[in-house]
Nucleic acid binder design. Structure first.
Lengths: 184, 184
DNA sequence: GATAATAGGGAATGCTTGTTTCCTTATCAA
DNA sequence: TTGATAAGGAAACAAGCATTCCCTATTATC
């Protein structure tokens, strides 16, 4: 079932919510129509489950990228580099389910809207945490406004996923190099 | 006709492409089904026309915001402030047609994909231009990498529109205050 | 080994969609 | 005024959609 859900994640990332038909879903999940509706109440429920699975996976990926840093600044740098890496090429063109949900559904679907909000807040707290860690370990100056900088960095990460959907190239070292000025 | 197109822009911004039915469109444009199809080949053509109209309007708004700055740095600051202002509140929740198109259509619709790409490049060149102006007039240090910084700022602006779709608040002075560090 | 229960599959259903067709009502030329 | 032309509107249409229903294996139970 989890493997089927992973396939659902892929379709939703590729096509978005509304452009994904039950037919697309069953084909990708290799399940018959009836089986999908036996496992989930409706298409919306499949999407919610896929969303949850996607955010769990991404959080895990981001966390492990951060872990490779020796101090707050390096951990944050690794997080940003990881975001750029996931926004590039085919993976980038596949898109982020959080960004997709925010843009396509958030305003009209309160349930999805709430999940998107919660996820963004979690990511923001995650980034703000690294800034504060860096300030404690001396790798980031104390005068940096942790919360404002974290919110702007959320904008950067979400924007990366938008740009990654297009044909514009994204150079991790260069972009993150510039972005790290925000911690000066 | 232009006033009808403005109404189409609004619906597409609110609901996105796929979630907007011809019924939604005719209701908003106050035109009958037949009339829409007499003016446009199909739904896709309506969207393309709306997209063009939206980008023209936004470019004009951004240009006039920039014009109020006395040097390159101030013009760029005004552009960023204008972006935040348009990403806030009801206007922000209405969303940006470029971001929406990038996320929802870009990957699967080559025509829209090309327009999104072109628009992002235009915006990026616009920002890079202000950076170079600032370097010429002395308001921005010469060591700033104009192109890399411009691309990162595009990510910021697109990200602002994503976050603006959610319930997270956006404080223009604070966010732009932090972002201006990129020009240090 | 027979039976109950469950999981999976595919056809059927009703609804919504984008699109077309045709009819009515203005607009304008002669 | 009359005839032709364009514009606008409503109903009709086929296709595609999400969802339901029912049938068929397979598993587990006694």
């Amino acid at each position: 079932m989890d493997t089927a859900l992973d396939r659902a994640v892929r379709v939703f990332r590729d096509r978005g919510y509304h452009a994904t038909s039950i037919g697309d879903l069953t084909a990708a999940m290799r399940l018959a129509t009836g089986s999908v509706y036996k496992a989930f109440r409706d298409k919306h429920a499949v999407f919610l489950a896929a969303f949850e699975r996607y955010t769990a996976l991404r959080q895990e990926q981001t966390r492990s990228a951060a872990a490779r840093g020796k101090n707050g600044r390096e951990r944050l740098r690794n997080v940003l580099l990881s975001y750029v890496a996931h926004s590039r090429g085919r993976e980038g063109r596949r898109g982020c389910l959080v960004v997709g949900s925010a843009v396509e559904l958030s305003a009209l679907d309160p349930v999805v809207g709430a999940r998107v909000n919660a996820q963004l807040k979690t990511n923001e707290a995650f980034i703000a945490g690294f800034i504060r860690e860096g300030q404690a370990d001396g790798s980031i100056p104390g005068h940096v406004a942790a919360d404002d900088t974290a919110r702007l960095m959320i904008c950067i990460t979400q924007g990366l996923r938008v740009v990654g959907k297009t044909r514009l190239s994204l150079d991790g070292d260069r972009l993150v190099g510039v972005a790290m000025k925000l911690l000066a």
